[in-house]
Design a protein around this nucleic acid. Structure first.
Lengths: 346, 346
DNA sequence: TTGAAAGCGATACCAG
DNA sequence: CTGGTATCGCTTTCAA
């Protein structure tokens, strides 16, 4: 059977990549037959000996079909494009994302992450559109505008989703309304007696799309409470000096409850306050967010806002539904759950 | 100029995606001319009015070139494929990865992350090969074997790199030899007087490819030291109960120095030991790894092994070099730097 | 300066 | 049951 000498990869690679025509030649059949065999086309019956010859020839040559050629012919892809978020994802989002990826692959989609560094909304969309994805799931912070959504749809994308704190006209939204987290934190602090409430605004620029709505949510709830409860914004970079500076002027601020954006900032601030001799929760109650393991390791144990993201399975189903019925009016799905978890710091 | 009614995206999307032929028709030129104009082909001079007409037509239609068709015609892609690592990357690796991605895009490569969930070495390689990447950068834990490398090369990949703790025959390696970290931690502990040395083995299965070599490196160095220094393995899951159990039997183990795999496990264990009344570093010295911010926030401040990864720039250059000269013998580049940072826990 | 046409690799229709 | 062939969108050589 194998008449062709078994060249090493180094050698063959220099020359030519095998195509289905090569497989056909080696198996002594036509390209059509090769295609039928390798795709298990049910509409056509191919004799068992032929099938074997084709399979052997394919293996012999190390044949791998060419995705570009296939999708060109097919007129569409099964690619779901997820532009890489600019913000390094925490464990929470990572897990959500993995689950989603897995679920989508159960629906026979190919999930591709594509880094579009430094491209702005419409330019980025054009770059994404070149791949002709059937769906795009854009992290909320990618600054995707209505124009960009339009570019994607015109390029054939059947489903465009934003997933993050904001929504975009024309796109479906998996709205992760970060204000909820602020609402939740504020309610918790108010309930436990805080009135002069601080909210940490992280210095990292990339976190702004999350930080602003969290702070805003807190403001909302505090404002709704009335009775002279106040909010103070506390800019804080993620390093010890910044935390020490903040702690040094803490008593002048008169804050009796603080929401620290997340658990990591909480740890940073808690340490700085303790080093300054400020009692938590005695003088100042504290609540973080994300329910990381490290929060439970702090002393006092950190109260936190636990965030619940939707199951990847449900989401994959939703994406699939929209792909199959692209005419659907864009929907906004509110998918972020927030619950305060009381421990010892508040 | 714009004679065609401006249909909304929703409408057009249902029908057809514009091709260069559509642009040509609208601009009143041939497809060749469209290609020349949009690619700024320097070999051909196109009159300014024609250029404008083409550009306007393209914008009018929302034309975006079809990457698959282009690369099919070109016979190659500029795609650098990075299979998504199974292990959620920490901040260290994330930053490295971002830098690399950025640097590669400066070389005009398109970085694509592709999740191949649940596929084993050769199957995964086949899936990757379908995209005809010009280079593949595979995280070490993807279990890529020599056969898989072969598949990729035969599919036309000019450069195959593994990056992680192991190397693979036939592929270039950016060897991140995790044993270095163990070596470094052991040397530090020995130097500071520990003799009965513990090494935490994290329970998370996905961490095994990193954990094993870190522990092995520690063993090497301790064995080389002689003088009755011993090593004890300490399995530990990433939760409080597991840590508490370990701490409860700590004194029976008689360990006077421990390397905790990383800073997060260090925090977990330190808390458990302190809750048990075991003094750090008094009774047991402790060193973590990764130099996370949280280590500096612990009391005592955590000694750690700082890990240095190579610059993305250098790496991108290397990848580019190999792509241009695919005949190169596979090289092993040792790219992981480890330095002990002494603080207060050791 | 522009246009016609070949061809990249895979697929699916229609004949045989 | 199998083979010829048109086709997807784009680039590029050759002619006009």
């Amino acid at each position: 059977m194998a008449q062709i000498p078994n060249k090493s990869a180094q050698q063959t690679a220099q020359y030519a990549v095998p195509t289905s025509a090569d497989v056909a030649r080696l198996a002594g059949v036509s390209r059509a037959t090769v295609s039928y065999v390798l795709n298990n086309t049910s509409a056509v019956r191919i004799s068992e000996p032929t099938r074997r010859r084709v399979h052997e020839a394919a293996k012999e040559l190390g044949y791998v079909p060419h995705a570009a050629a296939r999708s060109l012919r097919a007129g569409h892809t099964r690619v779901v494009l997820m532009p890489t978020p600019q913000i390094p994802a925490g464990p929470l989002f990572s897990e959500f994302f993995n689950e989603l990826q897995w679920a989508l692959s159960r629906f026979d989609y190919t999930v591709v992450q594509y880094g579009s560094l430094g491209l702005t909304g419409e330019e980025a969309a054009r770059a994404w559109a070149e791949l002709r994805p059937v769906a795009v799931l854009a992290p909320g912070a990618s600054g995707l505008g209505a124009r960009a959504v339009d570019v994607l749809k015109r390029s054939g994308a059947k489903a465009v989703f934003t997933l993050g704190p904001q929504r975009t006209e024309g796109a479906h939204a998996l709205l992760m309304d970060q204000r909820r987290i602020g609402n939740c934190a504020a309610a918790h602090l108010l309930e436990r007696g805080s009135r002069r409430i601080g909210v940490v605004i992280p210095g990292e620029q990339g976190l702004k799309p999350f930080a602003r709505p969290r702070a805003e949510g807190l403001r909302q709830t505090v404002a709704g409470y009335g009775q002279g409860a106040t909010v103070t914004e506390l800019p804080l970079a993620y390093d010890e000096e910044s935390a020490a500076r903040l702690a040094a002027r803490w008593r002048t601020l008169g804050i009796d409850g603080v929401f620290t954006y997340n658990d990591e900032y909480a740890m940073l601030l808690m340490r700085a306050l303790q080093d300054e001799g400020i009692a938590v929760p005695g003088e100042t109650a504290m609540i973080g967010a994300d329910d990381l393991v490290l929060g439970r390791l702090l002393r006092p144990r950190l109260s936190t806002v636990r965030i619940e993201l939707p199951s990847g399975q449900k989401l994959a189903e939703l994406v699939d539904r929209v792909v199959r019925d692209p005419g659907m009016e864009p929907e906004v799905h509110d998918v972020l759950g927030a619950t305060a978890v009381h421990r010892e710091s508040s």
